[in-house]
Design a protein around this nucleic acid. Structure first.
Lengths: 329, 329
DNA sequence: TTTTAGCACTCTTTGTGTTTGACTGCTAAC
DNA sequence: GTTAGCAGTCAAACACAAAGAGTGCTAAAA
């Protein structure tokens, strides 16, 4: 339903007051600050109407109005001005990505930290879709007793030392070739599937393969990769002064709940906003990476978060990541 | 100064009451719980005496006694019973280390998490002394355009992909040999020293070397390696309900202050306890690793922490780490 | 029909005084 | 040296009043 211009203006005032300090705002203050041309009584009438529509509410009879989650939603969808980041802010974000990052895990960690710092809210970045896909397996001789197993995946390299005696350089090479042939293109979990352990191709290198599995096991996450940053930022907002609420917020960020909440994303960055569940709001930017993966960057903050800024930051970071991952080797 | 047996008993009662719930204890309660054979008046006299000695104090005239930092120290040094971990607790700790861990960084992370979970306080584990020492550098061909740089150090393996065309397998091997010869035994920071970049030995592989440096830069920490776990555990204790105190505690744990606070450690595990600075207590276990490194595992918690348990856990974990690192390849 | 002034009403916040109860500290007797 | 007993202190809990902020409603003005 379309609101009148005046109602929009008033709702905007209530929401923005809420965003600024989390405090209720009164009809008188609205009048003084935003609409000196009508009386506070008129504004009161409008406020009552907005309250009936469910956009704002009262804590008690004689307190000012605060926005409901619905009100925030309306604001986000229709009233919010877009916010352009300052050059300085963009530069600040970019500066975190100057190093040539090819390792996707690292990109995620860096992104989470960057987003959290830029917005001053917590941030969760995770990768969905297919997990790490094996590209190449190499075995390198370090000494007569120890070899290095290197598993190259599309999101990074896992390398681990194994102790292995009496294996010639030639054997290593052959084993690596077989392993690569067998596992290239498969998800990394495949390494742990029983059927390969007893397969014909690997029978000759069974001991070696067992050691490799043992070394690599647990070095990768089976679940979607996830990076969290800025959990302590919640402490900057009075709505989390209550230690229980703080705990809940942090728990949510650490849980899988956020992950399960997102769409698959399209080619382009898709912004989704969830307002007010569990006293938290989440702005998420999701899009497809190559290799059937999805990247989702999220800002998690109080309901009165600066949505416009969160969106701008997510877009900026997403664009940067896109550039980085597109020119990936 | 040596306290009388009775004073010791009373001080012990005051400290243990403080540990249990952080609440003051009254002369009457002490009498009822611990010394029914003397009157509360007698206990009051003793309490006054202990107060004069600086071991306990008053919040206000009519509140019970709480221990001072001095009192906690006295308790820790002279009155505390040693606490043996239950079999279950030991098993729980051990279970975190069953995987064969050879990467020191990983051991540290795992240790911090284990300690924090076992004690329910925050934990900081860090390595001092010399940083990572290069053991071996390998260059592996992945494809015609991309190669893998592997730097094996005594605390773990760093591997990174670099894009590099027109380099033959032979060149790679030769370059790796030269690099290993040049850098083996040197700290990893040496890779970034200018003088090597312009050195005679590397002149032929300057481009390759530059790329390697670029790829590896920032993958290791120059500062002592550090692992922190369980910051959120502070929230379980009412003394940190005040958000400012919570922030301070977390800030301290994230800062370098704890690191700079420890001795070099000896061959054996050396336990050090610091009570009550900034409303926090730290129990640290430090000892030498091979390769001139020092490992320090710390429990950081409220002043009323369970020191005996912290010590037991640190000892258990330290022993486990020692075993792991001694049999390192 | 919309806007406004004005007033009654509600509820929080702040302040004040009172009571209760938990302790201590002291004194005098044991 | 120990104890009983009592006065004194202070925090915590409660009740009450006053002040202030803000609304909702009504009736009049535009």
């Amino acid at each position: 339903m379309k609101l009148s211009k005046r109602k929009e203006k008033i709702l905007k005032a209530v929401v923005e007051a809420g965003m600024e300090n989390g405090e209720p705002i009164s009809s008188k203050t609205i009048q003084e600050k935003f609409m000196p041309d009508v009386s506070s009584a008129t504004i009161r009438n409008e406020l009552m109407s907005l309250e009936e529509l469910g956009y704002i509410t009262h804590i008690h009879t004689s307190s000012g109005r605060v926005p409901t989650a619905e009100g925030y939603k309306k604001y986000v969808q229709e009233l919010m001005p877009t916010k352009k980041l300052t050059k300085k802010e963009v530069a600040q974000i970019q500066s975190n990505f100057t190093n040539k990052l090819v390792n996707l895990n690292e990109i995620m960690t860096r992104s989470a930290q960057t987003i959290s710092d830029a917005c001053n809210y917590a941030s969760v970045v995770y990768m969905g879709g297919t997990g790490a896909i094996i590209e190449n397996i190499k075995l390198v001789e370090l000494s007569s007793t120890s070899k290095l197993v290197v598993v190259v995946t599309d999101i990074g390299v896992i390398s681990e030392i194994v102790s292995l005696e009496n294996t010639s350089q030639k054997d290593l090479e052959e084993a690596a070739t077989i392993l690569t042939k067998l596992f290239a293109g498969k998800p990394i979990e495949a390494l742990e599937e029983e059927r390969y352990l007893i397969s014909q191709e690997l029978i000759k290198y069974k001991e070696l393969f067992t050691k490799i599995i043992f070394a690599i096991a647990g070095k990768y996450e089976k679940r979607p990769q996830i990076a969290v940053a800025g959990k302590e930022k919640f402490m900057d907002y009075p709505e989390f002064e209550n230690i229980q609420k703080l705990k809940n917020a942090i728990k949510l960020v650490d849980s899988d709940e956020i992950i399960n909440n997102t769409s698959d994303g399209g080619e382009d960055v898709e912004i989704k906003i969830s307002v007010g569940d569990n006293d938290l709001s989440i702005v998420s930017a999701t899009y497809k990476l190559k290799g059937n993966k999805t990247l989702s960057a999220n800002v998690v903050g109080p309901v009165r978060m600066d949505y416009a800024k969160a969106i701008s930051v997510l877009k900026e970071v997403s664009d940067t990541i896109k550039e980085l991952t597109d020119k990936e080797i």
